[in-house]
Write a protein that binds this DNA or RNA. Structure first.
Length: 824
RNA sequence: GCCGAAGUGGCGGAAUUGGCAGACGCACACGACUCAAAAUCGUGCGGGUAACCAUGGGGGUUCGAGUCCCCCCUUCGGCACCA
């Protein structure tokens, strides 16, 4: 007997064997098997694996191994999200080239992943910073460009002074950069955008198709897309032909408009005030707004501030003259940047009107307010009956929304309008370490796409890394200066690179045909493997990556390049790994190194603990004692299986089946059922593992209390134990499997099926309750009818005694569970 | 402020369809083995002498509620002047 569970010897041994035998090599399309694409979010190669990665990939590995054993043709790939700022920052700080830095990090992290024994086919590894990948990222950009979905425009964009580049809306969190935390400022720059807004409605509608996604993520996406219905209404500026269009979700309140507000940055504002007495004050106000940070400017805490600009507009419904303001609380990039002020029915307008002494006119009667001229103390934003609204008086306001919109459409005063909170995706970055945007600028031909046969536009290697606020590529003359693909004349390249979220928006497609050097992907393979059956990753990507990937997939589908329109059928968002109640981070000094944990306890122990300590969606509190416990358990399995191997022939009898044998067989099959359901239906690996523990605890008892055991039943139990352990502790299971005398890999074994007949129990314990309180328990035949069970219970002496002096009102029987006697 | 999730022993967690609250593990205590310790094996382990009380608090529905309904509190996540 091998006494010791020597993980340090067996884990590397099997990792080597699996690698050499190509155990995880991905098969091609196989029509005899159902396919299963198991995907975990690929990591950014920051240098070292952290526990969050270990958790993510341990979960994925269980799923992949389990599905493989269940007979699926499984794709389980891994790669590297390898472009991005940290590499460039390292280059600036330490003088290492980003490429070198990234590649050495990849090597290190790949080694760490391999040491954990995850079942990846490394042959299909994808690295986004390699030309064989970014060539196709560039190609995909051009597909967007050629279909009018990529465009360059000058706009006030989010600029992070820390990262010295622009950011997408999604990357700004509470007015700060999501990466470095610096306060984001506005800059007027010409930038590349992808027209994700064209897909806003479909991205919203198709959320319904995502049955296998957590509601949490779907709601976040819904809120982010932020659809609203309302009307655009035209207000003429008094004394001119100029028209201002506002967007409102409350056309029913139009008779309550007592002022109008414009975003200060609107060009119209300057036009309207130029040469008027208001010009100076307006200029001052605009300048003040520009110096304010986004956080101060857009916080609900900030006091409303505005300025009358000397003009009036006419309410198209009643011809009233309304003063025109600019104010801090109106955003230029939502709706039309112009808002009609209805202080009685919008709290923001109410605050503004109160401050500047503007009229507050009630047009929708609040409940319980009889007087239509009542003084409000705050805006009434709920429903009510229309008043002070001309022909619409007396209508229900919900009705009036429709009727007023219809009326305005008929009279040409306005129209029904849908608006989205979602903005177009800003993809330009003024940085070096990203995929080049394959566009050149020619004096004669203007903006020209780089032809497909000239792709990729290579990133030059001899570049100076200085954080100047301009792409380092702009100073690389050999890169910038080129010839125009159209006319052959001198031209200049685009020097911005792409947001790395572009690279990660299609990597899961590249995995399906990673070696195709003639196309971004092989259509037949992509259509075979996609969509992903199970995607696993952190919830922090709920909006950014997951929304962008859905957008990419829909564009590819519309271009006829793929046959599916949603990339991820099921999504699992795993919780964080915590230590002492907070997220592990270097700055807090509460990190636990996966490498050290593996060195001390082995990969199987580390994985087992992480899977056992909490269900996957929840946060997980790291516990060194818990790791110790997982290690103890593996040792316990080890000793049990070895004692069986060694003692097999001394205590057996084949023919007879004792009650203990029968119970062993029942538990064997119950354990199979429990684990299968826990993985398949619920991803509850923690309870699956506890079922294995209970099974092991029973087998110890069975072994120690029965010197005579049925060898067939015992062998089945031990084989089953090792087999169901395989997805969770792949190395230990493999070693034990071979020690049991098998020569093929445990990971190629079919997942066991349970025998329903074995689960049937002859007798069950039931509870006797009196008025819902447990008073007794008894063993009865399992197949007894409900009526017989109730009768049987009432006949028992103990129960009769309990009933003395009581009047039975009712008896509630639940077969195999309980009998509740209700007494008075 | 709005949206969402969660609150169960000393701790991580379980209870899958309204049916024995606390599975499994950790920690702890005691015992066996040992010269001793570790490891291992075994026993106990929500509170209370008990009747009983206990799943954040308060109501309700039900024969029966951690689970369903209403109100409130706390923590965490997302959004935050989106007209």
């Amino acid at each position: 007997m091998k006494e010791r569970y020597d993980f340090a010897e067996i884990e590397p041994k099997w990792q080597k064997t699996w690698e050499e035998s190509g155990l995880y090599r991905v098969g091609d399309e196989d029509q005899t098997k159902e396919k299963y694409y198991c995907l975990e979010m690929f990591p950014y190669p920051s240098g070292d694996l952290h526990m969050g990665h270990v958790r993510n990939y341990s979960i994925g590995d269980v799923v992949a191994r389990f599905k493989t054993m269940q007979g699926y043709n499984v794709l389980h790939p891994m790669g590297w999200d390898a472009f991005g700022l940290p590499a460039e920052n390292a280059a600036i700080k330490h003088g290492i080239h980003p490429f070198k830095w990234t590649i050495s990090n990849i090597e290190n992290m790949k080694r760490q992943l391999s040491r954990l024994g995850f079942s990846y086919d490394w042959d299909g590894q994808v690295t986004t910073c390699q030309p064989d990948y970014y060539k196709w990222t560039e190609w995909l950009f051009l597909q967007f460009y050629k279909n009018g979905l990529a465009y360059k425009k000058k706009a006030a964009v989010n600029w992070c002074p820390g990262c010295v580049t622009v950011l997408a809306n999604e990357q700004v969190v509470n007015g700060a950069c999501e990466r470095c935390g610096n306060e984001v400022i506005k800059k007027d720059l010409a930038q590349w955008f992808l027209k994700i807004t064209d897909y806003a409605q479909r991205l919203l509608d198709d959320i319904d198709k995502l049955q296998g996604w957590p509601d949490k993520v779907k709601i976040m996406q819904e809120n982010w897309i932020g659809r609203s219905e309302g009307a655009e209404v035209k207000f003429r500026i008094d004394g001119t032909d100029e028209v201002i269009t506002v967007y409102t979700t409350r056309p029913d309140t139009i008779y309550g408009v007592t002022f109008m507000v414009l975003a200060p940055e609107l060009p119209l504002v300057e036009k309207l005030t130029k040469g008027t007495p208001y010009e100076g004050a307006v200029q001052d106000f605009i300048r003040k707004m520009q110096t304010m940070s986004d956080i101060d400017r857009t916080s609900t805490e900030t006091e409303k501030e505005g300025l009358f600009i000397g003009q009036f507009v006419i309410n198209p419904m009643n011809g009233e003259k309304i003063p025109l303001f600019i104010a801090n609380y109106v955003l230029i990039d939502y709706g039309t940047g112009c808002v009609m002020g209805v202080p009685a029915h919008d709290q923001r307008d109410f605050d503004f009107a109160t401050k500047y002494g503007l009229q507050i006119r009630l047009v929708i009667m609040p409940e319980g307010v009889p007087d239509r001229y009542a003084q409000l103390t705050q805006a009434w934003e709920a429903e009510g009956i229309m008043v002070n609204s001309g022909p619409f008086d007396g209508q229900d306001n919900e009705e009036a929304i429709k009727n007023i919109t219809k009326y305005m459409e008929e009279k040409g005063l306005g129209s029904f309008q849908v608006n989205f909170r979602l903005r177009d995706w800003l993809i330009s970055r003024q940085r070096y370490w990203g995929a080049p945007i394959p566009i050149v600028y020619c004096d004669k031909c203007g903006e020209v796409a780089v032809p497909d046969d000239e792709l990729p536009v290579y990133l030059p290697t001899d570049v100076e890394f200085k954080p100047t606020g301009q792409s380092p590529l702009a100073e690389c003359e050999s890169f910038v200066n080129t010839t125009c693909p159209k006319c052959g004349g001198p031209a200049k390249r685009e020097t911005d690179t792409m947001d790395t979220f572009i690279c990660s928006s299609w990597y899961y497609i590249r995995y399906c045909s990673p070696h195709d050097d003639t196309a971004a992907f092989t259509r037949s393979k992509v259509n075979y493997w996609m969509p992903v059956e199970q995607y696993i990753g952190g919830v922090e990507h709920a909006i950014l990556h997951l929304l962008y990937s859905r957008f990419f997939t829909k564009v590819l589908k519309d271009q006829g390049l793929v046959d599916f329109d949603e990339p991820f059928t099921n999504l699992l968002t795993q919780g964080m790994v915590l230590k002492d109640g907070t997220k592990m981070s270097k700055s807090k000094g509460n990190t636990v190194s996966p490498e050290e944990t593996v060195a001390q306890y082995g990969a199987d122990t580390a994985r087992l603990f992480i899977l056992f300590a909490a269900p996957p969606e929840r946060d997980l509190e790291w516990s060194d004692a818990g790791v110790e416990g997982a290690y103890r358990f593996l040792n316990r399995v080890w000793r049990l299986v070895y004692s069986y191997i060694d003692g097999l022939n001394e205590s057996v009898k084949v023919e007879e089946v004792s009650p203990a044998d029968k119970e062993t067989r029942r538990l064997t099959h119950y354990t199979i059922k429990k684990i299968t359901d826990d993985i398949n239906l619920r991803f509850n690996f923690n309870t699956a593992i506890s079922a294995i523990m209970e099974f092991v605890n029973w087998l110890y008892l069975y072994r120690d209390k029965n010197t005579v055991r049925n060898s067939v039943i015992e062998a089945e139990a031990v084989n089953t134990l090792v087999t169901v352990l395989a997805p969770f502790a792949p190395h230990a299971a493999e070693e034990l499997w071979h020690e049991l005398g098998y020569t093929d890999s445990i990971h190629k074994q079919p997942w066991p099926k349970y025998d329903p007949a074995a689960l049937v129990q002859d007798e069950v314990e039931i509870v006797v309750q009196v008025n819902g309180k447990v008073r007794d328990r008894m063993i009865i035949p399992a197949d007894i009818s409900k009526e017989d069970m109730e009768k049987f219970v009432l006949e028992q002496d103990g129960v009769k005694k309990l009933m003395e002096g009581q009047q039975i009102v009712k008896v509630v029987g639940v077969p195999k569970k309980l009998v509740n006697i209700v007494v008075k």
